[in-house]
């Protein structure tokens, strides 16, 4: 990746730090021009993504590492300004095509995180890192999909 992140967080895979990341994400999204409601949604999507890394990637081990890098996206006439968030880990690798949200008609606990992430963010890309672990790239624009903007804060 060529450009430098404006913000980079390194955390261990302990769920106690998720609330810190949520606060930071919401605040950063506001600084990047997102409204309060959108900023809360972005924080939710990142929270779900990191929780999935801790739960599924590291199997609740607390000594793994997770990196969150945040980049601004330039002004686009149609989509406005935006944010790119890259979440990387050294956890178990999975085939990106196998990462799917569950059928919402199936009312049961669990499996909602991926659905939430895809619903909120404009672009979602899972890939294997060359060395180890996974990389998740999330993008959202201030004037992105109309559907996601309709969700309450």
């Amino acid at each position: 990746m060529d450009e430098k992140p404006h913000l980079r967080i390194e955390l261990i895979s302990h769920s106690r730090y998720l609330s810190c990341v949520r606060e930071c994400m919401a605040q950063t999204a506001r600084q990047f021009g997102f409204a309060e409601a959108q900023s809360s949604q972005i924080a939710l999507a990142v929270d779900e993504a990191i929780a999935n890394v801790i739960k599924h990637g590291y199997a609740d081990r607390t000594d793994g590492l997770i990196w969150v890098s945040i980049y601004p996206l330039g002004d686009d006439e149609i989509r406005g300004t935006g944010i790119k968030i890259v979440i990387e880990d050294e956890a178990r690798q999975v085939e990106p095509s196998c990462i799917k949200g569950r059928d919402l008609a199936d009312i049961r606990p669990g499996g909602l995180g991926v659905h939430i992430i895809r619903e909120i963010m404009d672009e979602v890309c899972y890939e294997k890192r060359a060395t180890s672990g996974m990389r998740l790239t999330l993008c959202k624009w201030t004037k992105g999909r109309a559907g996601s903007a309709a969700i309450s804060a």
Binding site: L112, E119, I120, S152, A153
Partner: peptide, 16 residues
Amino acid sequence: TDRVRGVFEIAQLHKV
């Protein structure tokens, strides 16, 4: 709150 209800709505669980 609206914020919490929003999560139920994305998951389509608000009717359940």
